[in-house]
């Protein structure tokens, strides 16, 4: 690809359409605004929705962080970051959450609380939470407009009848500003409360499904639940009921990934958010450095 390429890869008409769409998405919180998702030089389903948003948003001098499942070094993050570096000269990249102006992420929201001057772009595979109960998009749009989520609630209730709790582990249906229910992308339950009254604007892009939607800052985001079956996040308890900690940094307040130690065959838990884990490790080892 030549360096004489248009800044941001997309032509200005494509960017303008995404910009107009994103403004309507913020004005109607949680509503999936359709747009004519462009062909990108990677397969749909590999984060093209988030990528198109980032390319329409970003400008020279800004600093970007790209995350895939909490890590900046996973294959999707590495490729998207390389593509943006190639097509957006003058844009900086970082792995440190606090240094980023824009964060594009797949499947996680950083553990470190985001600030008002930061912006989070989430890659979305399936934007419509009603698709499990209604096949026709025309009918789903009507149900969304009327904020009629009774069939979705019945689906959750069936879970309770069968399993005594709601078994959705990720993509947890979340109601925005008391009206639209969104699919918050495949983030774990752990991350859903971070959307509620978030200081940062959250934009969600589904490239294959051609939808953009938003959770504006300081906006209610409430996971669907029942009065007697409240929403709860992952507990990460061990056999004795104690909260597990990260085997690397010792943090006992982060979302943990489970690994199997190839030597011992035992389960090992580590922070999913790589930058958070590094920060905790530095913080923990800092006093030793001073003493040493």
């Amino acid at each position: 690809m030549s360096l004489a390429q248009q800044f941001g890869f997309l032509d200005e008409y494509a960017k303008k359409e995404i910009r107009r769409t994103s403004l309507k998405a913020v004005a109607i919180p949680g509503y999936q605004v359709p747009y004519s998702s462009r062909e990108m030089p990677m397969g749909r389903g590999f984060g093209t929705g988030g990528l198109q948003l980032t390319l329409a948003l970003i400008g020279e001098g800004e600093v970007l962080k790209v995350i895939d499942q909490g890590s900046d070094d996973s294959v999707n993050a590495v490729n998207l970051r390389a593509f943006i570096e190639m097509t957006c000269p003058g844009v900086g990249t970082t792995r440190v959450t606090g240094e980023a102006d824009l964060i594009q992420s797949r499947h996680r929201i950083p553990e470190k609380p985001l600030r008002e001057d930061q912006l989070l772009v989430l890659q979305v595979p399936y934007p419509d939470p009603l698709v499990v109960v209604e096949a026709s998009e025309e009918k789903r749009k009507q149900l969304h407009g009327e904020a009629d989520y009774s069939r979705l609630l019945v689906k959750l209730y069936e879970d309770i009848v069968k399993f005594d709790e709601i078994t959705i582990s990720h993509r947890y249906p979340t109601r925005i500003n008391d009206h639209y229910v969104i699919d918050p992308s495949p983030i774990p339950r752990w991350d859903v409360p971070k959307l509620h009254m978030s200081k940062a604007l959250v934009l969600l892009g589904a490239g294959r499904e051609k939808k953009i939607y938003a959770v504006p800052p300081y906006t209610k985001a409430e996971p669907l639940a029942f009065e007697d079956k409240p929403f709860r996040v992952e507990a990460f308890l061990d056999e004795r009921g104690r909260r597990r900690a990260c085997a690397r940094c010792g943090c006992d307040s982060s979302f943990l990934d489970e690994y199997v130690d190839s030597n011992s065959g035992h389960q090992v838990y580590r922070c999913s958010d790589a930058d958070w884990c590094d920060e905790q490790l530095t913080r923990r080892s800092a006093p030793e450095v001073i003493n040493g």
């Binding site: 769409t21 309507k24 109607i28 509503y31 025309e138």
Partner: peptide
């Protein structure tokens, strides 16, 4: 003002 299915 848009419509109920398409308020944008």
């Amino acid at each position: 003002l848009g419509s109920l299915p398409s308020p944008e």
